[in-house]
């Protein structure tokens, strides 16, 4: 696929995602005025507020206005507090990107290691294979809250090595005190890597079974070289796709993890914005997350295009 076609496809996906998110939020029962008045206002007062916020217009019209605003670089104002959405999101975006980045920095090597373990043992009746596979499956299914509580009990409670909550310094960055990132990042990375490994493990097993790998091993090529030259190039594209997917999952999971650790990021904001039907805020965050995932897929597609040309046989 050519680069322009890839870009066109991604733009179409981004546009579709924004329609779906807008529609889904609009279809939820109750709206921002209900949230804003806490159910304690008269119907007339609520109608007045709806008109003030433009919520009395049809959904398609609101969407069109939102898109027009966005084209001008204006993400609108929060329906709940009237604050500019750009301000609200920008306040928290760096914290979440840092956390998600730290989580992915753990997820990527963990995924590769676990996938290698699963792929290399697949098909063999080795004693190591089954418990490893079982553990990975359990880790992939572990809810983040449970894992977070477990990690806090061990590392903050028993070992006293890490803080149990991750309160960011006022006006500072999470990098001022990296210890704050460890437990939330591990909470995000472990299930995500396990899930990724179950997907990538199959690709590893397939590649290892290819005749040219066996031939290289038979020729006496050292294991490291076999891995680097004859196996990894085949795994690059599927791995990047999986990492893009995991990045999206990691961003989504920040909602739970940030709240648990008191970490002031976008996930925490998104949870509240959905609960109070603050559509412009939800849209902005969803769009940012979609952008991250699509950028990942773009990288994966480009890598696939490149490795296809140079694929050794």
């Amino acid at each position: 696929m050519t680069v322009p076609r890839i870009l066109a496809r991604l733009s179409a996906v981004a546009a579709l995602a924004s329609v779906v998110v807008f529609g889904a939020t609009a279809l939820l029962p109750s709206d921002a005025v209900d949230a804003r008045t806490g159910g304690r206002a008269t119907a007339a007062e609520q109608d007045r507020l709806r008109a003030e916020l433009g919520l009395d217009r049809p959904v398609w019209r609101r969407y069109a206005d939102w898109v027009t605003g966005l084209a001008r670089g204006d993400a609108g104002r929060s329906l709940l507090t009237g604050r500019p959405v750009g301000d609200v999101v920008a306040e928290r975006l760096p914290a979440t990107l840092t956390l998600a980045g730290a989580a992915m920095a753990l997820t990527v090597p963990l995924t590769v290691a676990l996938a290698w373990l699963l792929g290399a043992t697949a098909g063999r009746r080795s004693r190591a294979a089954r418990p490893v596979g079982g553990l990975v499956t359990v880790a992939a299914a572990l809810p983040q809250v449970v894992l977070a509580a477990l990690l806090v009990t061990v590392f903050a409670g028993l070992l006293r090595a890490l803080p149990p909550v991750s309160l960011l310094p006022a006006g500072g960055s999470p990098l001022d005190d990296p210890a704050l990132l460890v437990l939330p990042a591990l909470t995000l990375a472990i299930p995500s890597a396990a899930y990724g490994a179950t997907m990538l493990g199959g690709a590893v097993a397939d590649t290892l079974r290819r005749p040219h790998v066996a031939a290289a091993v038979a020729r006496g090529v050292p294991a490291r070289q076999v891995a680097a030259r004859h196996v990894l190039p085949f795994l690059l594209a599927p791995a990047l796709r999986i990492f893009a997917l995991l990045a999206g999952g990691t961003l989504a999971a920040t909602a739970v993890v940030e709240t648990f650790f008191g970490y002031a990021g976008l996930g925490e904001l998104l949870a509240g914005a959905v609960a109070s039907r603050d559509v412009p805020v939800v849209q902005a965050i969803a769009l940012a997350a979609t952008g991250v995932v699509l950028a990942g897929f773009l990288a994966a597609d480009l890598a696939a295009a490149l490795t296809d040309e140079e694929r050794p046989c």
Partner: peptide, 19 residues
């Protein structure tokens, strides 16, 4: 082939903890 990645994993965890 198994050894290298599990070493990386252990190293990664050690780095993240000691930081």
């Amino acid at each position: 082939l198994l050894h290298a990645p599990s070493g990386v994993l252990a190293l990664g965890l050690a780095v993240s903890l000691s930081a």
